[in-house]
């Protein structure tokens, strides 16, 4: 699949924003007043920034409001509705903390839960795709949620939860790669089922429908840089797991190093998300002699 920058930014940024909101909502001893303000500013900038970035992916963004209507069947629509509800809940909860009102733990809890469900629905936009076997995997929503929670904990400077989150999300990332590598083969779709010609023997594409490219090939038969996959996975593991763990442990003695852990984790996420799209094989590739 084509790794569109707008979609990578959307999933990474909004995921981190909602992960931070989840942390703030579940915090049993939350910050108050001016102390809590910067964290909510970061959380809202990340989540709203990410959501706005997704609009750049649209052919007609001026009609984006229509996307809130089909929540009964569409994960994309659910994501939109849930994101708005989550932003509203967290705005209320954030305000109550900022003004040090008699804050409601229940409201915080609900805000956190909604933040996680929103990330889950973001992941489901991709994980629901039967046509992309690599994505059609229960590990994908778990990975998205863990990454956002780990990111939220590191931004909050929480050593313990940050460390657990980084390690868990890196392990799940590895698992998703291992399972994903077998997914296309294990899915029963192949060139025989896509053409129904298996009785005629070994099949290959003799002629493409046209000499140039088309939308389908650019969007779904993306193969550029697949040869660098291994190197990129190693890079991603370093930035996502190894370096943040080192800086997190060092931050016990030198506090500000947790910031470097965050920056590294963020780059790791970007590489991992780029790979998430670039590596994904769509079954339509069988009609184009790939896959």
């Amino acid at each position: 699949m084509h790794p569109a920058p707008s979609i990578i930014i959307f999933t990474v940024f909004s995921g981190l924003g909602f992960g931070l909101m989840a942390y703030l909502g579940f915090d049993t001893d939350p910050l108050r007043g001016w102390n809590v303000l910067p964290y909510y500013l970061i959380a809202f900038s990340l989540s709203i920034g990410g959501l706005l970035s997704s609009l750049f992916h649209l052919g007609n963004p001026q009609r984006a409001w229509r996307a809130l209507s089909q929540w009964r069947t569409s994960w994309l629509s659910r994501e939109g509705v849930l994101a708005i509800v989550t932003l509203a809940l967290n705005f209320l909860f954030g305000l109550s903390l900022f003004f040090s009102l008699d804050y409601s733990k229940n409201l915080g809890f609900v805000s956190g839960i909604f933040a996680i469900i929103t990330v889950f629905s973001t992941a489901m936009i991709y994980a629901q795709m039967k046509t992309v076997p690599r994505w059609n995997n229960s590990g994908v929503p778990i990975l998205f949620i863990l990454c956002s929670l780990a990111g939220g904990a590191i931004i909050m400077g929480d050593f313990k939860l940050g460390l657990i989150g980084v390690i868990l999300s890196t392990l799940i990332q590895l698992l998703v790669w291992v399972r994903g590598d077998k997914a296309l083969k294990n899915s029963s779709t192949n060139i025989s089922t896509s053409t129904g010609l298996k009785n005629l023997g070994k099949l290959r594409l003799l002629e493409s429908p046209h000499t140039g490219e088309n939308y389908l090939m650019k969007e779904m038969v993306f193969v550029i840089a697949r040869k660098h996959v291994f190197k990129l996975r190693i890079l991603s593991l370093c930035f996502l797991g190894v370096i943040p763990v080192i800086f997190l442990i060092l931050s016990l003695s030198v506090g500000f190093l947790i910031g470097l852990a965050m920056i590294s984790y963020f780059f790791g996420l970007l590489i991992s998300r780029w790979l998430f799209f670039a590596e994904a094989e769509h079954v339509v590739s069988f009609y184009y002699g790939r896959g």
Binding site: M1, H57, L58, G59, N60, P61, R63, A64, R66, A67, S74, L76, I125, M129, K130, T131, V132, T189, S194, N214, Y215, L216, E219, M220, H282, V283, V284, Y287
Partner: peptide, 26 residues
């Protein structure tokens, strides 16, 4: 008139039967 050009339907189709119009964005 309602299509926002998100392209998700083209992803969901296993047959490659939907194509985004690059000029109109639908």
């Amino acid at each position: 008139d309602w299509c926002i050009g998100c392209g998700l339907c083209a992803w969901a189709c296993p047959y490659g039967a939907r194509e985004m119009d690059e000029v109109a964005g639908v």
